[in-house]
Simulated assay, not measured.
Amino acid sequence: MGAKRQKNNPKREKNNQKKTKLLSNNIIATAVGLFSCIAGFYIVYFSNPHQNKVVTIEDIGGSYNITCSEDYKEHPIFTECTPIKTCGRFVRDNIVSDEEVEQLLALAKRGFAHGGSDGGASILDLHSGALSMGERFVNIYKFLENDALLETFRDEDFELYNDVKSRVHKTISEEFGIDPSKLYLTHPTFFSSITNTSAKTQHDEYWHKHIDKIQYGSFDYTSLLYLTSYKKDFEGGRFIFDDANSVIIEPKRGRLSFFTSGSENPHHVEKVTSGVRYAITISFTCDPKKSIKDPKIRT
Rank of each mutant, 00 (worst) to 15 (best):
1 M>A: 14
3 A>T: 11
9 N>K: 10
15 N>V: 12
15 N>H: 12
16 N>D: 13
20 T>W: 04
22 L>R: 15
23 L>H: 13
25 N>G: 10
28 I>L: 11
29 A>V: 00
34 L>G: 15
35 F>K: 11
41 F>H: 10
43 I>M: 08
44 V>L: 13
46 F>Q: 13
50 H>M: 12
52 N>A: 13
56 T>L: 14
58 E>T: 14
58 E>H: 15
60 I>S: 11
62 G>W: 12
67 T>Q: 15
67 T>M: 08
70 E>F: 09
72 Y>R: 09
73 K>I: 05
76 P>V: 11
78 F>I: 09
79 T>M: 07
80 E>D: 15
82 T>C: 06
87 C>Q: 09
87 C>K: 11
89 R>C: 06
91 V>G: 07
96 V>K: 09
97 S>Q: 02
99 E>Y: 02
100 E>V: 07
102 E>F: 07
107 L>W: 03
109 K>L: 01
111 G>T: 04
123 I>K: 01
124 L>E: 01
124 L>W: 02
126 L>A: 03
126 L>E: 03
130 A>S: 15
135 E>L: 10
136 R>T: 15
141 Y>D: 01
145 E>M: 05
145 E>L: 05
151 E>C: 02
151 E>M: 07
162 N>W: 03
167 R>A: 06
174 E>Y: 04
180 P>K: 14
191 F>A: 09
192 S>I: 00
194 I>A: 14
195 T>I: 08
196 N>E: 14
199 A>N: 12
204 D>Q: 05
208 H>W: 10
212 D>L: 02
213 K>S: 13
215 Q>A: 15
216 Y>Q: 13
219 F>W: 01
227 L>P: 02
228 T>Q: 08
228 T>L: 08
229 S>Y: 04
234 F>K: 04
235 E>H: 11
236 G>F: 05
237 G>N: 07
239 F>C: 00
241 F>E: 01
242 D>M: 10
243 D>C: 03
245 N>H: 05
247 V>F: 08
247 V>K: 11
247 V>Q: 05
248 I>P: 00
256 L>I: 07
256 L>T: 08
259 F>Q: 11
260 T>K: 02
261 S>Q: 07
262 G>P: 01
262 G>R: 09
262 G>A: 12
266 P>T: 02
276 V>T: 14
277 R>Y: 03
278 Y>Q: 00
288 P>F: 08
288 P>C: 12
289 K>Q: 09
291 S>V: 00
297 I>V: 15
